[in-house]
């Protein structure tokens, strides 16, 4: 039971520089890995490859020895840095949440999502409030692996701690494979059992 990137190369166009070259990474279910690197080291690209948002030019992303499924809900879910881009601006937030399945009251409670927010549009909420929805949406969809790409880089310290505590608890309960991508070494040390430093 593992999610694995096998010697993946990636670049955005034929004449563009390589963003990732021969990158390997392996994580088992129930493991918590922090990928640490300053900006510009292809952290986001790696996250998108692992969650199937992008396909590697060379190499493979394998889930339990087979490539990621193309159809259906992906067992590897990604939460991105900018929540306001990850929700449809014309949808009320109840609908945003229900896109991944029926509402999970316990998650809403844990994340501090107010009932009144469900009837609002994304532009009426702050980034910190929206990110709680994105976390709830990703956790509701099931799946065995969760990739968090700088999910708290935009947030204040308290919101960061709130969200991460919920994610860690859920990861523990469902023995999720968790990859936290961050540029904050202290945060990496706090949440992960293993740290992969891309900058060395």
């Amino acid at each position: 039971m593992a999610l694995e990137a096998k010697n993946v190369d990636f670049r955005y166009g034929r004449n563009q520089p390589w963003i990732l070259k021969d990158q390997c990474l392996k994580i088992g279910k129930g493991e918590r890995l922090a990928v640490f690197a300053p900006s510009g080291y292809g952290k986001t690209t790696l996250a998108m490859l692992l969650a199937g948002y992008l396909e590697p030019i060379n190499g493979q992303v394998l889930l339990d020895e087979i490539p990621l499924p193309k159809k259906g809900a992906c067992p590897v879910q990604l939460i991105c840095q900018h929540p306001e881009k990850a929700v449809n601006p014309r949808w009320r937030l109840r609908r945003v949440l229900e896109e991944s399945g029926p509402l999970r009251e316990d998650l809403l409670e844990a994340l501090g999502i107010q009932r009144a927010w469900l009837a609002r549009f994304p532009r009426e909420l702050s980034g910190g409030e929206l990110q709680r929805f994105c976390v709830a949406r990703a956790l509701t969809s099931g799946g065995d692996y969760l990739i968090c790409d700088e999910i708290s880089a935009m947030l204040d310290g308290i919101t960061q701690a709130q969200i991460w505590n919920v994610v860690l608890e859920e990861a523990e309960k469902r023995s999720l494979g968790l990859i936290a991508i961050t540029h904050n070494r202290r945060l990496a040390g706090r949440i992960a059992s293993r740290i992969l430093d891309l900058s060395v």
Binding site: E124, E129, D156, G157, Q160, A161, Q162, N184, R186, I191
Partner: peptide, 22 residues
């Protein structure tokens, strides 16, 4: 509260959220 919530000093949040304009 912010100090106590930082990952290097406890990572313990207080409940609630920042009120937003409006």
């Amino acid at each position: 509260a912010l100090w106590k919530a930082l990952p290097q000093n406890g990572f313990e949040p207080i409940p609630g959220f920042q009120p937003y304009a409006g």
